[in-house]
């Protein structure tokens, strides 16, 4: 079964969850599907999933009637996950639950780490995990939203000897991708539903809607839970423009030294200042005083008023 406790113990960091590795997957050639859930929403984690089974069992997997998870209701997905679990003698899965806090802080990092890079690295990490666990991966199928060709080249290069197929909508084309999609979506739904706010907010209204920025329920929730200083709890992805726009218009302004507008100017200013203090020797007779570097190193200066 899927146990989300390790993630819920600390939902500010990402977490890997995995099924037992079926013995047959260590001895027989396997296919492996990769899919993601919750890429678009402004709320909650994004979940990356892989599912794998012997190539010989592909038809059996198909017979479980796993289809693209997006076309299913939540109950249907839970039901299908149940079926996958019952097939654990030959089907295995692994998930990376990417905490919304990790998504925010990565995307807003000084050296920006965009969602595509994060997605690719996560997928690569999961495939490597399967290999490290002894799964005889021979074929990999990946669902993608970005340009498929480049991604396919990248993966083929990274995993020589594995036949990689990257396709948009792969989840409706390959059963093993559909299965990965179901695992990811089930985990994402559960993580959102059972989200434990580490912030001390008392009772939190859980009527988030779908979490997609254009969902009126999600919008209403974002308006209701906007704090003028802190913005949002870590449940919200701060890097989404929806959240940024709301904070800009309804919250107090916050400025960082690497802000595009403020920061560059400030850096320039500081540069000029230090250039001056180092190199412009005071002209003869001119009344200038250079503060000793003990103070400038420590950002200490005299005041002339409080």
């Amino acid at each position: 079964m899927m146990d989300l406790n390790p993630f819920e113990a600390d939902n500010s960091v990402s977490c890997r969850l995995a099924s037992q590795i079926p013995e047959v997957c260590r001895t027989e050639d396997c296919c492996l599907g990769v899919d993601e859930a919750g890429r678009g929403p402004v709320l909650g984690p994004m979940v990356y999933g892989i599912c794998f089974c012997p190539i010989s069992k592909n038809q059996e997997l198909k017979d479980l009637k796993v289809a693209d998870s997006k076309t299913l209701t939540e109950a249907e997905r839970e039901n299908l996950f149940q079926k996958l679990d019952e097939a654990k003698s030959y089907v295995g899965w692994a998930l990376d639950v990417l905490s919304p806090n990790v998504i925010s802080t990565s995307m807003l990092q000084r050296t920006k780490y965009n969602l595509n890079a994060l997605s690719h690295d996560t997928a690569i990490g999961l495939i490597q995990f399967a290999l490290d666990s002894g799964v005889q991966v021979k074929e990999v199928f990946v669902d993608t939203v970005g340009p498929a060709e480049k991604y396919e080249q990248k993966l083929s290069h990274l995993f020589p000897g594995i036949e990689v197929t990257v396709r948009p909508k792969a989840d409706s084309l390959f059963p093993v991708v559909s299965a990965a999609s179901i695992c990811a979506k089930v985990a994402r739904d559960r993580a959102v539903e059972r989200w434990k706010f580490t912030e001390n907010l008392g009772e939190v209204d859980t009527d988030y809607g779908s979490g997609y920025p254009n969902d009126p329920k999600t919008k209403a929730w974002l308006l209701k839970y906007l704090d003028p200083v802190f913005g949002y709890p870590q449940f919200v992805r701060f890097s989404w423009s929806t959240a940024q726009t709301l904070m800009d218009s309804q919250g107090v302004s916050v400025h960082w030294d690497d802000d595009e507008e403020d920061g560059e100017k400030a850096a320039k200013r500081q540069n000029n200042r230090s250039m001056l203090s180092y190199f412009s020797a005071p002209a003869e007779g001119e009344k200038t005083h250079q503060t000793h570097r003990f103070f400038t190193d420590r950002r200490l200066k005299s005041l002339n008023s409080l």
Binding site: Q270, R299, S302, L303
Partner: peptide, 29 residues
């Protein structure tokens, strides 16, 4: 300020018995 010849802020303690200097640690942002 004996070094700059300009105004600087100081504190005189209770009863003017002790003089104090005022410096600010200041970094942008």
């Amino acid at each position: 300020n004996p070094s700059t010849d300009e105004a600087s802020l100081y504190v005189l303690g209770s009863g003017d018995l002790q003089l104090y200097e005022v410096k600010a640690f200041e970094e942008d942002f």
